[in-house]
């Protein structure tokens, strides 16, 4: 029970402690302006992490965010008003790109379920495919976005926050509701808790697995549009490092790799932890490469911490 409680409140406590430490160390960290920066900086990671969380709830893992986001970033920058194509689809372009992301997610899920291949392999493959598609679309010339509507996502502010941040907040709430109150969300959680039991109850598990992967892909598509709005152009590396950062955030927040535990709320605490850490380290003058190293270590530590109470029960770990 204490271990259970630790996993529920531990991440929140860590977040508060981290914020307190940085607030003491850096006067700049304490400003309102920094809070705005912090949330704006965390918006994209939050949306990607939502996607990753749905897949983690199943007990699967999704390494495809980097590739899918690359392809979607290029696609969105070519679909809205831009420097390379004559297209000017505006909001429809963004919708199409979310659908493209969903299609990639659906592919990962279908390959994993249909071919019975572990998800880290299929998503690694799909990530490579996404990067390839991105490179093909890139074709050596970086498309600059000129659609004012999309660009305003990142530039215009309302009550101090960009639209990207509001959008991310809306997605968080929606994703939380879906996870709690829809069949997709509940079954995704249940699959992580005991896939074999669901099969015994005659539930078509594969369908819901593919569904969760599809939701994840859609999140990556939206995140790619958000990144593109922030950068003002479509780049292949739009999602570089985000697959890993999202998994780190989710796991640090208390969503477990084994599936069925945690969820959107937990993962968002993890996103805040990572964002505060990145922001605070910059403010106290630590190299961004050190932050990357820290990220590599904390995911291992976080997974280790969640598995530690179970170490005697797990006989085989691959």
């Amino acid at each position: 029970m204490t271990a259970d409680r630790l996993q529920t409140y531990g991440p929140t406590a860590a977040l508060l402690a981290l914020a307190a430490v940085f607030a003491v160390l850096s006067p700049q960290f304490r400003t309102l302006g920094n809070l705005q920066n912090l949330l704006d900086a965390g918006a994209v990671l939050a949306v990607v992490t939502i996607g990753a969380t749905y897949v983690l709830l199943l007990g699967c893992i999704d390494l495809s965010a980097a590739g899918v986001m690359g392809a979607c970033a290029l696609a969105v920058s070519l679909l809205v008003a831009n420097s390379r194509t004559a297209l000017d689809l505006g909001p429809l372009g963004v919708l199409l790109v979310v659908a493209l992301g969903a299609a990639f997610g659906c592919l990962s899920g279908a390959l994993s379920v249909g071919l019975k291949v572990p998800s880290f392999m299929t998503t690694l493959g799909v990530s490579a495919i996404g990067l390839g598609v991105a490179t093909v679309l890139f074709a050596g010339v970086q498309p600059a976005v000129s659609d004012p509507w999309l660009l305003q996502w990142a530039s215009g502010r309302w009550l101090g926050f960009t639209r990207v941040t509001y959008l991310a907040a809306a997605v968080v709430v929606l994703a939380w509701l879906v996870q709690r109150h829809t069949r997709l969300g509940r079954y995704a959680t249940a699959i992580g808790g005991g896939e074999d039991i669901l099969r015994l109850s005659g539930i078509q598990v594969g369908r819901y697995k593919v569904g969760a992967f599809t939701v994840a892909g859609a999140c990556y598509g939206l995140a790619a549009a958000m990144v593109t709005a922030q950068l003002g152009s479509g780049i292949v590396q739009a999602g570089a490092g985000l697959s890993f950062a999202a998994i780190t955030a989710a796991v640090v927040g208390g969503t477990q790799l084994a599936g069925g535990r945690g969820g959107i709320a937990h993962s968002m605490v993890g996103v805040l932890i990572l964002t505060v850490l990145a922001n605070g380290l910059v403010l106290i003058g630590v190299s961004p490469y050190v932050q990357r190293a820290v990220q590599g270590v904390i995911v291992v530590v976080a997974v280790g911490a969640t598995l530690w109470p179970l170490r005697h029960r797990l006989e085989v770990v691959k």
Binding site: R186, G193, G194, I197, G260
Partner: peptide, 16 residues
């Protein structure tokens, strides 16, 4: 054969 992280009600009606 109960899913541990669901409510008792969900388990009772699982799949139907």
């Amino acid at each position: 054969s109960l899913v541990p992280n669901l409510t008792a009600a969900e388990n009772i009606l699982l799949g139907c």
